[in-house]
Amino acid sequence: MKPKYIIALTVVVVFLVFGAFSLKKSLTPYVSFAQAQKGGTVQIIGKLVSGTDYYDSQSQKLAFMLTDQESRLQMKVLYDGVKPGNFEQATEIVAIGQYQSGTFEAEQLLVKCPSKYQGLPPDK
């Protein structure tokens, strides 16, 4: 094998290893509320406790409570960003972030709504 192939191969392998490593670190598995409290970046899914959302004017963050559908545990979520458009109507809310001393600090919120982009025909 010529040295230039070895160099090329090394570069490619380094990148792929780097990519796989980053991917593994950035993976955010869906976990239960109890597991989320153990730390790490994860996704939790739950129902919004209606009426609990407000803007915390000091930290300028959106705060709300989520309920785990299975364990009925509740968790306070802080989100540094714009309240998603369909927040109140969401069937479920996915929060991606980390649990830190009593609250879940969300980096990203995904709001699940039934049939968001699909026109549903009337009852057939």
Binding site: F15, G19, A20, L23, S26, L27, T28, Q43, I96
Partner: peptide, 29 residues
Amino acid sequence: ILAFLVLLGTSAPLLTTLLANPSNVAISY
């Protein structure tokens, strides 16, 4: 390589569902 790594991230939910616990990747990836 860039295309492949973006593809890998985009497919992560599908791949992880097949392997184990369904996971997404954070934008930081």
